[in-house]
Amino acid sequence: MSPGVDSAMGAAVPTLTRLVRIPLLPRLVRLLPLLVLLVVWKAVTDAHWYPPELLVPPSEVWAALLELIETGELQNHLQVSLHRLGIGMALGCGFGVLFGVVMALSRTVETYTAPLFHVIRQVPSIALIPVLILIFGIGETFKILIVIKAAFFPVALATYTAVQGIPRPFFEVARVYQLPRAVLFRRIVLPATIPPIITGVRLALGRSWGTLVAAELLAAEAGIGQMMEFARQMFRIDVVMVGVLITGLIGFGFDRSFKWLEARLLRWRVR
């Protein structure tokens, strides 16, 4: 955060008080706008401006959430979605790391594969859905393949950049200390490359999650996306809103945990 912008634009206010005030902002104040939104939402539904098929009060969304949990429906859909995400991410990240390392270490591999890699990277994962459906049908395979495609490229790119970015002096120091290869790998290569790779995995996870939900909206027998799509066809706006909420919460949860992991793995870095 830069307090400079405030002091410059808010001309008269002394910078120091700004500096002190920002961290002291109670967390509750940050939640206030969300509470206001809830109150406005409630007021609008109470005023019956919109038909209930279009806007239901927050309490009904909450009730729908509880009902979906009680019947176990939500857990089922989530389990299916997360299972697909898990397999796809594991394979996509695995291949991504492997390919990134090879491309960074071998000049030959880089020259031969880089153009194709960058061209395919630009093709939106979602555009591949129709062709995958034509080849593999609307079963599990196509959804997992879509997740793999969405995960592979960010991870491969992050790994490539990370491995290429290890500063040369690190290796020189290792040579001076005559570090064995295993130690060099464990104490230098891994700490230098893992954090940026984790950043790539975090990006990949966000994109894969969005792509998977979209794929489930298009064609699935179960999953959080299918739950929303089915609810839309049934005009169950409360269930659709629960779906949106849960999708957002899961995305948020993934993002936060990986950011935490990044920060933890970078503790050693001198600031």
């Binding site: 979602i126 966000g206 999650w209 969005g210 792509t211 939900v213 979209a214 909206l217 996306g225 929303m228 799509e229 609810a231 839309r232 706006i237 659709v240 809103m241 779906g243 949106v244 999708t247 957002g248 919460l249 995305g251 948020f252 993002d255």
Partner: peptide
């Protein structure tokens, strides 16, 4: 921002 944009499509 937390909700994947395409996930908003049903709503």
């Amino acid at each position: 921002r937390q909700v994947p944009t395409l996930g908003l499509i049903p709503l």
